[in-house]
Amino acid sequence: MPLSAQETRRYARHLVLRGIGGEGQQKLKAARALVVGAGGLGSPVIAYLAAAGAGMLGVVDHDEVGLSNLQRQIVHTSAATGTPKAESAGSFVAALNPYVHFVPHNERLTDANAEALVAGYDLVIDGTDNFATRLAVAEAAEAAAKPLVSGAVSMFDGQVTVFVPGGPRFRDLYPFEPDEADLPACEVVGVLGAVTGVIGTLMAMEAIKLITGLGEPLVGRLLLYDGRAARFTELTFGRR
């Protein structure tokens, strides 16, 4: 479907951008992306994919907006406190870009429903904050042969990587399930809000690269960010 006159003006900076152009924007318009988690990482992913013109954007989140979320979860507002995060994110997207079809999934992703949720989308972006859910997302994406952008943050640091069909898998990077005591929640140790912005924006960038075919995605590479030192480090990993 061709871009409308309004869309052409809206995405003008993409259309003149070498490597994106009209073809890349059409790919974005045709894309169906699922964001798991509308929190600190999911917020910048949702914002930038919606702004970029992703045609269909699904968001999975069972939680409600809380006051303590607003320090980092930028798609939610004070007025949205107490409302489901998926619906709050939908209001943000509708206000930002009416050309994005938003699908709220107001439920917790589990082993039981992950396959069905992933099935309707072309790629998955996971910004959840517990290992069990991240594993469920990764295994569902792998089973459905869908690319996955995966990120995580803690305190002042973060990481992001990409899994694609046939490439290194989530289990190759994390062969053993960690003890929950070794992964304290941000409610316990805290997280600097801007760190979620850095990692979430990198995740959005990786998703756009996968959709448009631009550049080299972080496949088999784990990008680590040390916020205090303002330093990025890259580790490589392969299939076991």
Rank of each mutant, 00 (worst) to 15 (best):
His62Cys: 03
Leu183Arg: 06
Ala80Gly: 11
Asp126Asn: 04
Glu142Val: 01
Ala141Pro: 00
His14Glu: 14
Thr233Met: 14
Gln25Asp: 09
Leu218Tyr: 10
Glu64Met: 05
Val103Pro: 01
Gln25Asn: 07
Ala79Tyr: 02
Pro147Leu: 09
Lys29Asn: 07
Val100Arg: 00
Ser91Cys: 09
Pro175Val: 01
Leu49Phe: 04
Arg221Val: 08
Glu115Gly: 06
Ser4Arg: 09
Val45Phe: 01
Ser154Cys: 01
Leu15Asp: 11
Val164Gly: 06
Ala38His: 05
Ile125His: 02
Val16Gly: 11
Arg72Ser: 04
Ile74Pro: 08
Thr233Ala: 15
Lys85Leu: 00
Cys186Thr: 07
Glu187Lys: 12
Thr236Asp: 11
Ala5Ser: 14
Gly120Thr: 09
Lys29Pro: 02
Gly66Ile: 10
Val162Ser: 04
Val75Ser: 05
Gly40His: 00
Ala141Lys: 01
Asp122Glu: 12
Ile199His: 04
Ile211Asp: 01
Glu87Cys: 05
Lys146His: 07
Glu107Ser: 14
Ala141Val: 00
Glu234Met: 12
Leu123Trp: 08
Leu123Asn: 06
Ala112Tyr: 02
Asp226Met: 00
Gly42Phe: 12
Arg10Asn: 10
Leu123Met: 13
Gly193Trp: 06
Thr77Gln: 13
Gly197Glu: 06
Gly213Val: 14
Ser68Arg: 12
Ala194Arg: 01
Leu41Met: 03
Gly19Val: 11
Lys209Arg: 15
Val103Trp: 09
Lys29Leu: 12
Phe156Tyr: 15
Tyr99Lys: 00
Arg240Glu: 13
Ile74Ala: 08
Leu224Thr: 09
Pro98Thr: 01
Val36Met: 05
Ala79Pro: 12
Ile74Leu: 08
Val149Cys: 02
Gln159Ala: 02
Val198Asp: 02
Leu135Gly: 00
Leu109Ile: 11
Glu23Ser: 12
Leu183Thr: 13
Gln73Arg: 04
Asn97Lys: 11
Asn106Ala: 15
Leu210Ser: 02
Ala52Glu: 06
Thr77Tyr: 09
Asp111Gln: 12
Ile208Tyr: 07
Ser43Arg: 00
Glu23Thr: 13
Gly42Thr: 09
Gly166Lys: 07
Val75Glu: 08
His101Ser: 13
Val124Gln: 02
Glu216Trp: 02
Val75Tyr: 04
Ile199Phe: 06
Leu15His: 11
Thr81Lys: 14
Ala204Pro: 04
Glu216Arg: 15
Gln6Arg: 15
Glu177Asp: 03
Asp126Arg: 06
Leu28His: 06
Pro98Asn: 05
